[in-house]
Design a protein around this nucleic acid. Structure first.
Lengths: 220, 220
DNA sequence: CTGTTGATAAATGTATACAAAGAATGCTGA
DNA sequence: TCAGCATTCTTTGTATACATTTATCAACAG
């Protein structure tokens, strides 16, 4: 594996999981020593992350991890809504019904996962990732897939901010199940509408979670 | 200006305008000498272009300019349709009516530009760019704007393949005018529908042009 | 004559040295 | 004491040298 890829992945993970919090300044020598690569591949990684929108150049010099505000959540969903709708529409037209049928079956058992503590929750998130992957595989359009990948990067960051409310997760699983069933039935319009519903609910939940987190932080 | 930016812009222009044709191999030393920068900033530029999807790593080693096939056009429009629809919806909600009113007036005179030969056509394209810019300004969501920018990069490449049929350009101008007027009237749904129409027609034209070009090339 | 393998050459990937641009700090003068 | 300026020091940007990988070509065996 190339050192630049290694650095990219490491920094990406650190940013997404919050180890490198928004606003953190990334000095080249410091990070290159921390990650055990020289400045050249590190700079390549940084320039990739800048394209991803995960770091930005602040006040002339100095790269810092970008912030994720309440506004960002709304703005991200303004991209997410049309992209995910288009994705499920195409998946409904082109997807392999058997694969999505299998996923539907697993989502019908999502409750059990969600009630299964930390391990179960993680399994539930992995199930969601497999769904995303199946949709991307069905789409075939590399342009849309690339846009989705970039989107999911930012969504993963936001997810960290949302509380993992089992009640909401169960509701989300049901909403998702409707989408999958529409794909299995090759009903693009229904899939799009169900996605619209899911997006709306997810956005509301994300905003509420972020707001309550803001309050908590102010109190603390 | 940084050498890496200079290299990026130069390569980007060459790829978009076709000087660097699809399939062209980009050797680092060769390009760095051609552009008058050393390998380090050149590599940074190359890695950016790879993220843009304009070049790709083929068979292990060797970066080549990505191809633009008929399939690519269809696939690109599968991203374009939802993105542009969302963009005009938001523009209709948030845009400054005066700015778009001015653009509408200019599009009403588009015929004159389109009939004005090479210079006029270029002016017409610049008018379209100003419209795109106005829409992006109105949107405010950096995520959507970034996705649109990436999209327009690839569209610019395709445009080179389309023949500039004045009849089609005039029709496109009228379609665009409908969109702008919907924005001025703050009618998001109408703007979205008009965009849907415009996309459909543009796609058809792009495909026809690409097909006839394919035939031409085969004959030649 | 063809397939495989080893050597060689060329290109990419990484590290480091050097240059240039900013920021911080301290000095001087009012 | 504070403003302005110069100097120094840190940090980024670029060039180049070095390491590593991979493709090509030739020679040899089958």
């Amino acid at each position: 594996m190339r050192a630049s890829d290694k650095a990219y992945r490491a920094l990406l993970d650190d940013i997404v999981d919050g180890s490198l919090a928004p606003g953190t300044a990334l000095a080249e020598v410091e990070q290159s020593e921390r990650l055990g690569v020289s400045r050249t591949p590190l700079r390549e990684a940084l320039s990739q992350l800048r394209k991803d929108g995960l770091i930005e150049q602040t006040r002339g010099r100095g790269l810092t991890v970008t912030d994720v505000s309440l506004d960002d959540i709304v703005e991200l969903y303004e991209l997410r809504q049309p992209l995910e709708q288009q994705a499920v529409k195409l998946a409904a037209q082109r997807g392999n019904s058997q694969i999505f049928g299998q996923l539907a079956a697993e989502f019908r058992n999502a409750d059990r996962l969600i009630e299964g503590g930390e391990v179960g929750i993680r399994a539930y998130y992995q199930l969601n990732e497999r769904l995303d992957q199946a949709i991307e595989d069905a789409i075939s359009s590399p342009y849309l897939v690339a846009a989705l990948k970039s989107l999911h990067l930012h969504l993963a960051r936001i997810r960290r901010l949302s509380r993992r409310d089992p009640v909401r997760l169960k509701a989300a699983a049901i909403e998702t199940l409707v989408i999958i069933e529409a794909i299995v039935d090759r009903n693009p319009e229904l899939a799009a509408s169900a996605t619209q519903v899911h997006m709306q609910q997810s956005l509301r939940n994300a905003l509420e979670a972020a707001r309550s987190r803001e309050v908590t932080q102010r109190v603390a």
